[in-house]
Design a protein around this nucleic acid. Structure first.
Lengths: 218, 218
DNA sequence: GTCTATACTTGGATAGAC
DNA sequence: GTCTATCCAAGTATAGAC
């Protein structure tokens, strides 16, 4: 019932404040974790008053979800264009590696993990987070389908199942690399995956370029 | 410096209390998550006074680490015997599937994930948790080595790297299945892995029984 | 819309009676 | 060793001045 100040379009200053708060929330989640994401802590980093969290978002939980929404749409914009360029399995693995490395470096992966793990502690947060993670899994699934299509591979490698595993691997690698501060171990996994993807290219019979689907494999 | 009441061996009652507290801590971490693991909350579930957390463990953080230690050694006992029986890759995958399913059901996986993710919020907790996670990765690595040994597989599949990926997958699957309450998706991954493991059996030339290493592959 | 001030709750931690 | 009582810091959330 009733967000905040009904409908009159928000002033520029209000937009700035909301933005400062969501940005601060992101940083706290990334660097200090879920249980440090308090109204006071976030407002302090945003350089504004603690009460504004409740004025603009109603509750800390809503602010955290707004921050997650923010990250999700940023990511969506960044990567859905890249997905359109993917043709061969090795393209896909390369894209996955790029996504993972970027998310690892800028802290988006950490943020997501904190929200998922933190959801256990706050009743009602779980379903909200779930709704925001589903698109990520769907993204991975669509990516796989676009590459595996109806090739013989789809039988041994059901895209839905693999997508689930990829996302899980992504989250788990983030957990571990965040814990021991070692990016390299995680990145090594994707390096290895790139090698294996070359095999998959052969099995599927990689189309050499974008508009050449009339041709058959050699 | 100085744990608690120096050295005289603790009374039976004290042992009971410590145990009640670690047990309660485990349950809170499993079912309510890291940021619900407070001294008051834990003591309430243990049926004793909040002050006893500090008398016996000095701080909440120490209690949580004691709980994690507890789980780690339980697991160690349960699974290291089983590892000795592993010969073929498919044995290993079967063991991994069993471990994962049990940890998923009894909440050990959830507990570990909460501790890792929660470590971001508490300075100093990270290194302590890391020290307790390392044995799990080592376990996976040794398991892989015992099966892959110096077969041709070790070249394409470096045990250390794969062990890291397996543990990451384990943690990530827990995160996802805890979030959406769906065990099946996670268990399906291991089902699929079992199928693939049969191939690996062939490549390595599985020894048919325990004491038959004199024989060569057919 | 933003700030100050405040009410109220919960959490970590200690002192002292038993 | 355990409990009661208590201190103090930090949390959510709201009211009211500006």
């Amino acid at each position: 019932m009733a967000k905040t100040a009904s409908k009159s379009r928000p002033s520029a200053r209000a937009v700035d404040t909301r933005r400062a708060l969501t940005d601060a929330a992101k940083e706290i989640l990334r660097f200090e974790g879920f249980s440090a994401a308090t109204a006071r802590n976030i407002a302090a980093r945003a350089g504004c008053n603690q009460g504004l969290v409740f004025y603009h978002f109603g509750s800390v939980m809503n602010l955290l979800l707004a921050a997650l929404d923010d990250v999700s749409s940023e990511r969506r914009e960044r990567y859905s264009a890249a997905l359109a360029e993917v043709r061969r399995p090795s393209d896909l693995v390369e894209l996955a590696a790029r996504i993972f490395q970027e998310d690892l470096d800028n802290g988006d992966a950490a943020l997501l993990v904190e929200m998922i793990a933190g959801a256990s502690s706050t009743p009602g947060l779980g379903t909200e987070v779930m709704a925001r993670v589903a698109p990520w899994t769907d993204f991975a699934e669509n990516a796989l389908k676009s590459v595996v299509d109806d090739s013989p591979m789809a039988a041994i490698v059901p895209p839905g199942e693999i997508a689930h595993a990829i996302v899980a691997l992504y989250l788990g690698l983030e957990l571990l690399s965040h814990l021991d501060g070692d990016r390299q171990a995680a990145l090594g996994i994707f390096k290895r995956a790139s090698q294996l993807a070359s095999f998959a290219d052969l099995i599927i019979g990689s189309p050499p370029a974008l508009e050449d689907e009339g041709k058959d494999q050699p």
